[in-house]
């Protein structure tokens, strides 16, 4: 059976309200299709769920907020509290609440919010986002979405898949293993399989800078490189997520017969839905944390510090 995953908005049904207006149900599964009118005090708020999937157990709940004109509302001085609803049990009863924190994906340029969330069960869930703005105004919006019983990518606490990944000895030519224009050589000396075999903790980064056109894109690998500088003894592994070949001195994607990118064997081995994807693996070969989309340095530091 084909497993078609809806990233994000994750087939979310959104209801929104602002300035105290009651929430209004929207028939469309797409959160941007809310039928709630804009608030008289300002534009309505819409969530963008940036996680590729949610699954039973611990999750990194990544999201942003915009107004209906697509203006980004996410900012360091806008706080967002979250209330979660187990729709299958009681759609209007709060199951648990948590706060979130803003993180810069690119310092001072663009960011989003992250919250640590543990879903006790799979099924239909909802989240009410309540944002407090610097002027004291509050806006709220709810999105409903599906939570899987099991995640596609390796679950936190599960064994990291052992896959052979390309390596180059220190001092070797890195052009054949990365599209990073300023690669960190130590990221390419150890394969995932070798690190697992050696029982050494490591950080695996499935990411490619190849398709980034602007400074606000592709910050993940740069963020990891910054963290790695403070941990010279920890193993970091960067792999290109796609099948590539060396052409004219640089890696180029190898497209399939339909002109599409092809996932590399190690990407398929980890059953990743998206890239960039970061996993922190401990000395027992267990996934201690995983990140996708964007990451703050201190998030990674926190996990590394606990290894």
């Amino acid at each position: 059976m084909r497993r078609l995953m809806s990233l994000v908005a994750i087939a979310a049904v959104v209801t929104a309200c602002g300035g105290g207006a009651p929430p209004t149900a929207a028939p469309s599964p797409v959160p941007t299709s809310t039928d709630a009118p804009p608030s008289p005090e300002g534009p309505a708020m819409l969530p963008i769920l940036a996680s590729s999937e949610f699954a039973k157990g611990p999750n990194r709940f990544l999201f942003s907020i915009t107004d209906r004109q697509n203006l980004l509302l996410a900012a360091p001085d806008v706080s967002v509290d979250l209330a979660f609803y187990d729709v299958d049990v009681a759609s209007e009863e709060i199951a648990f609440e948590t706060d979130s924190r803003f993180l810069w994906a690119v310092e001072g340029v663009s960011g989003l919010y992250v919250a640590k969330v543990e879903f006790p069960s799979g099924g239909r869930w909802g989240t009410r986002f309540t944002a407090t703005f610097p002027d004291g105004s509050i806006r709220t919006v709810r999105a409903d979405y599906d939570v899987l019983e099991e995640s596609h990518s390796p679950a936190i606490g599960s064994e990291a898949p052992s896959v052979d990944t390309p390596t180059v000895p220190l001092g070797g030519d890195l052009a054949g293993v990365t599209t990073d224009p300023d690669p960190e050589p130590r990221f390419y000396t150890t394969s995932i399989a070798a690190a697992l075999e050696a029982g050494e903790p490591f950080v695996a980064v499935f990411a490619t800078p190849a398709f980034c056109q602007t400074a606000t894109c592709g910050p993940t690998l740069e963020t990891v490189k910054g963290v790695a500088a403070d941990h010279p003894d920890l193993t970091f592994i960067n792999v290109e997520p796609y099948v590539m070949s060396l052409q004219d001195g640089a890696l180029r994607p190898v497209l399939d017969a339909n002109g599409r990118l092809q996932p590399a064997p190690w990407t398929t081995g980890w059953d990743l839905l998206t890239e960039p994807f970061i996993a922190v693996v401990d000395a027992d070969g267990l996934v201690r944390a995983k990140f996708e989309g964007a990451i703050a340095p201190d998030e990674l530091e926190e996990v590394i510090g606990a290894l």
Binding site: S64, G111, F211, T216, C217, L261, E292, G293
Partner: peptide, 15 residues
């Protein structure tokens, strides 16, 4: 750019 890069634009709310 390829379809997979959409995820990064989604996460950062980039047009």
């Amino acid at each position: 750019w390829p379809p997979d890069h959409l995820q990064e634009h989604l996460a950062l709310a980039e047009g």
